[in-house]
Computed example of a mutant assay.
Amino acid sequence: MTLRFDVDAVVLDIEGTTSATGFVVDVLYPYSRSRFGALLSERSGDPAVARATAQVRELIAEPDADAARVEKALNDWLDEDRKATPLKTLQGIIWSEGFARGDLVSHFYEDVVPALRAWHATGVRLHVYSSGSVAAQRAWFRSSPEGDLLPLVEGLYDTENAGPKQEPTSYGTIAAALGTAPDRLLFLSDRPGELDAARAAGWRTVGVRRPGEPYYEQGVGDHPQAGTFDEITIARSTT
């Protein structure tokens, strides 16, 4: 069964939607975990690192926490899979450098890139909204097995510049930034809470259910669902 949508833009989740959560958990998380200590100790004066460190101290309510305590908090959040903004910021810095060095190559399901290219070719605008930082998103799309995919994507949104992914107001923020009516936006995600929030903001939604992903068994509630991007046809009216 093919789902058909007449929309102006598609906004993509990454983990579990375009790409395997297992790759993030098994490859990227350990990569960042092994490098938090060096980043915090050697580059504490970098503005982005200093800001994220201050945010960690605020979240754990320990304004005088040293680098070792901050690192422990980051690792605890990793273990909990907590979507804390400073964690995502510091991961983004580490991953961006890893992708740039060639240590890392991102993962995309095989049905994703052809669909993105086809949608882009028809004039559909593509954007990303992920709990991973904008820096991490940029590196992810730039370092795919099929080369630099960043030219396909117009905008990148995370929990810092848009807000929490399960809050309808975040989707309102993105719609306003895009200058697009909510009902002309389609959000693709594997997480029911995110889909519910997008729909509450007036967006169209599709739940992507891929075997082996964490939310596969739970399902996507009463949202339209697709197993691959091949099952989604995007058109854009010209009138």
Score class of each variant (00 low, 15 high):
residue 197 A to S: 12
residue 88 K to T: 03
residue 219 G to Q: 04
residue 57 R to V: 00
residue 100 A to W: 02
residue 93 I to G: 01
residue 114 P to F: 15
residue 197 A to G: 12
residue 170 S to T: 05
residue 21 T to L: 10
residue 194 E to C: 03
residue 171 Y to I: 00
residue 157 Y to D: 01
residue 77 W to E: 00
residue 209 R to E: 08
residue 70 V to E: 04
residue 111 D to Y: 06
residue 134 V to R: 15
residue 40 L to K: 12
residue 153 V to S: 02
residue 134 V to I: 02
residue 133 S to E: 06
residue 103 D to S: 12
residue 61 A to K: 14
residue 38 A to F: 10
residue 163 G to E: 10
residue 178 L to E: 05
residue 191 R to W: 10
residue 9 A to W: 06
residue 163 G to N: 00
residue 228 T to V: 02
residue 67 A to K: 09
residue 31 Y to T: 08
residue 136 A to H: 05
residue 188 L to G: 09
residue 197 A to R: 10
residue 118 A to K: 15
residue 99 F to Q: 07
residue 34 S to H: 12
residue 126 L to F: 06
residue 79 D to W: 05
residue 226 A to M: 11
residue 232 I to D: 10
residue 86 P to T: 00
residue 36 F to S: 09
residue 126 L to N: 13
residue 120 H to L: 11
residue 15 E to H: 06
residue 167 E to H: 08
residue 204 R to L: 11
residue 56 V to Y: 05
residue 6 D to N: 14
residue 78 L to D: 06
residue 7 V to Y: 11
residue 44 S to N: 10
residue 216 Y to A: 09
residue 25 V to P: 00
residue 103 D to I: 04
residue 96 S to A: 06
residue 5 F to C: 10
residue 62 E to G: 07
residue 179 G to E: 05
residue 155 G to K: 00
residue 131 S to R: 00
residue 1 M to Q: 15
residue 52 A to I: 12
residue 183 D to P: 11
residue 81 D to K: 11
residue 70 V to F: 05
residue 86 P to I: 00
residue 83 K to T: 02
residue 136 A to M: 01
residue 190 D to M: 04
residue 12 L to K: 14
residue 159 T to D: 03
residue 134 V to S: 11
residue 204 R to Y: 08
residue 198 A to F: 01
residue 221 G to A: 13
residue 129 Y to D: 08
residue 108 F to A: 08
residue 216 Y to L: 03
residue 208 V to Y: 14
residue 167 E to I: 02
residue 139 A to P: 14
residue 45 G to A: 14
residue 48 A to P: 06
residue 79 D to R: 14
residue 177 A to I: 02
residue 211 P to T: 14
residue 2 T to E: 15
residue 198 A to N: 09
residue 189 S to F: 04
residue 99 F to R: 01
residue 11 V to E: 01
residue 42 E to V: 11
residue 198 A to W: 07
residue 224 P to G: 13
residue 6 D to T: 04
residue 232 I to F: 03
residue 5 F to A: 14
residue 159 T to N: 01
residue 37 G to Y: 08
residue 70 V to H: 09
residue 107 H to T: 05
residue 75 N to P: 06
residue 49 V to R: 09
residue 32 S to T: 04
residue 230 D to K: 11
residue 125 R to M: 05
residue 222 D to N: 13
residue 98 G to Q: 04
residue 5 F to K: 13
residue 136 A to L: 05
residue 120 H to S: 15
residue 25 V to N: 07
residue 165 K to N: 04
residue 201 A to F: 13
residue 210 R to W: 04
residue 148 D to K: 13
residue 206 V to M: 09
residue 230 D to E: 02
residue 233 T to E: 15
residue 77 W to M: 09
residue 180 T to V: 09
residue 78 L to Y: 10
residue 162 A to M: 00
residue 189 S to K: 13
residue 211 P to F: 14
residue 206 V to C: 11
residue 56 V to R: 08
residue 215 Y to G: 06
residue 13 D to Q: 06
residue 157 Y to N: 04
residue 10 V to H: 12
residue 44 S to Q: 15
residue 146 E to W: 12
residue 46 D to G: 05
residue 107 H to P: 01
residue 164 P to F: 07
residue 36 F to A: 07
residue 114 P to D: 12
residue 192 P to C: 13
residue 189 S to Y: 05
residue 103 D to C: 05
residue 68 A to P: 05
residue 62 E to Q: 14
